[in-house]
Design a protein around this nucleic acid. Structure first.
Lengths: 331, 331
DNA sequence: CTGAAAGCGCTAACAC
DNA sequence: GTGTTAGCGCTTTCAG
């Protein structure tokens, strides 16, 4: 890092005090118009920018958030982060990104750096192995809001923003039944993730109530390769499935690949429904019908919640994001 | 931001000076083992973390980089950023993310924040409209390395890391010819982008030299919808194309959608070749053959270059990333 | 081995 | 309207 123009330097050149210069630069009421003009002019010339460290140190406000995610690529977190970053830049906040790579230790050290950098708040989507939530809760108790987003812990935490998993999965199940699907292959994510458990439970419940549980085949798959493999195996089995449900985008693209391998088309050969951020369903023809779980919406909600926490506006209950069905032609 | 435990507080509780505590915390040689132990113990207890602002202010080193990208989602930048962030966390650097949203003004204000935060270096992938490079060059001259990555300006800048576009496009063209493709539909990105221009020029040159230029149809498309539309139109025209070349992943997925619409399969009905980060080609069956332009590799190279600049190790020529053909079954 | 003191660049009372 | 001053929390000479 290179030392740039400072307040002090401006002051010296203008024969003013740093205080005056500082005031001139920030539209303080009591400042001579002429002085102000001179200051602004020189500041412009010398390309002055206030040193954020000094400001933060002095004001105890970093104007910076940390975001910790398991991965950055592809499916969801990129749009989540985009949304947060977008809102932040409008509010003159900056965003520090940390990728835990699904490793709880990395996650923890990221949290540590957040503390060191005195961020004003932390957004975190936990890894599937994260057990110890105490460090997060502690920071939160100390006054730095920690908001869990998307992949949230099952309990023991104050601030959570996630989708209404139960509602979404229930919605999906009902939609499938409404469409007259009888023999269903339903693919969910890793057993351990609370998101998989919640979605599965709600999904099954609907089928059970409709008395259709016997025709429901449940599978778990982690990653799109596993999903592809599973679908290939099940469809080859010749059980006469008339629809596939995919809990995530990742599962969807695996399933779709296997349909291609088998030469099956949706919706004529088999129906497809998924939960998605909205991008991948559009890659196929016809486009896949999906329940939208929007990273953008989630990000925006989380950010608003963060701002309201910082303003002490609310200590309200945890927010849930609603969802809607986007009709493609796959079912 | 909440004020946490400080050096001062530790010192007071232990009846030591802040200097001693500071030394104890960082393994300074001349410090009594006993003192050190006491300090470490209390620091642990009180959950002490050094205030990064104070440290940076004092040491004039922020241990922080800024990355400015046009978008974060989907195709390339997410893996680029992942790679940079990964290397950074290993080197105890943090990463500030800025999304310019393809808006030169946003880009500029992001750069400003980088300056304010006294980042140690900036990585930037410019928007397609970025004209004025002076602010970047200026910061660079002032001693904060600014490295252009991926979408780099055509000239006038010191540090650039990008793919060897000419080589890659030439490689693609040769490969197509080798495979006996005669009647080609080649899709490139926005005219204005230097990346499109360079790839196109190299591509055309090969066909020209081979005396096959008359069978080459060139199209430009921005975004995957445009690509899909273009391909649909051209293939419906019935010109007997026997292969499609897609300059990017974005163009590829548009093209592939139109093939689905038309009920065409690769490679039997038409061959497909693209340049890609490696993810999207795997979604199709058979997988698409591609020239790999790896965001990970690019990010790693850029980061290494940054570190060597910071160590004054090299002022070497601009780096180019090499590429290879990954064979799928689409050609 | 430890302490005192200066100062990184900035803001915000408090003077005048 | 402007200057003086006192720190924010830390590192780092320089003394002892």
């Amino acid at each position: 890092m290179k030392t740039a123009t400072t307040l002090h330097e401006l002051a010296k050149r203008l024969n003013l005090s740093t205080a005056t210069v500082s005031r001139a630069l920030k539209n303080h009421p009591n400042i001579a118009p002429d002085t102000k003009a001179r200051v602004l002019k020189l500041a412009e010339e010398l390309d002055y920018e206030p040193n954020a460290y000094a400001v933060s140190l002095r004001t105890s406000s970093s104007k910076e958030f940390g975001i910790i995610v398991p991965t950055l690529t592809g499916f969801f977190n990129d749009s989540l982060i985009s949304a947060i970053q977008d809102g932040c830049s409008q509010a003159e906040y900056s965003v520090l990104i940390f990728v835990s790579d699904n490793n709880p230790e990395t996650e923890l050290s990221s949290l540590k750096i957040c503390k060191q950098r005195q961020v004003d708040g932390v957004f975190i989507s936990i890894t599937s192995q994260t057990q110890n939530l105490e460090p997060f809760n502690k920071l939160n108790r100390l006054g730095t809001p920690v908001i869990f987003v998307d992949r949230v812990p099952t309990n023991d935490t104050e601030h959570k923003i996630c989708f209404e998993d139960e509602v979404a999965a229930g919605l999906s199940a009902e939609y499938l039944i409404k469409k007259g699907k009888k023999k269903l292959l339903a693919l969910f994510g890793h057993h351990q993730l609370s998101i998989s458990q919640k979605r599965l439970a709600a999904f099954q419940e609907v089928f059970e109530k409709a008395g259709l549980k016997k025709d429901l085949t449940i599978r778990h798959a982690q990653g799109y390769e596993a999903s592809a493999e599973q679908v290939l195996k099940d469809l080859k089995g010749g059980h006469g499935y008339d629809a596939i449900f995919c809990m995530t985008d990742e599962i969807l693209i695996g399933a779709m690949k296997s349909l291609q391998v088998l030469g099956l088309k949706a919706p004529s050969d088999i129906g497809v429904l998924c939960m998605s951020n909205g991008f991948f369903p559009k890659l196929y023809h016809p486009e896949i019908t999906y329940i939208e779980t929007s990273g953008k919406k989630l990000g925006e909600t989380a950010l608003n919640y963060m701002f309201s926490l910082l303003k002490n506006e609310q200590k309200q209950a945890n927010s849930r994001i609603s969802m809607e069905i986007i009709e493609g032609g796959s079912l």
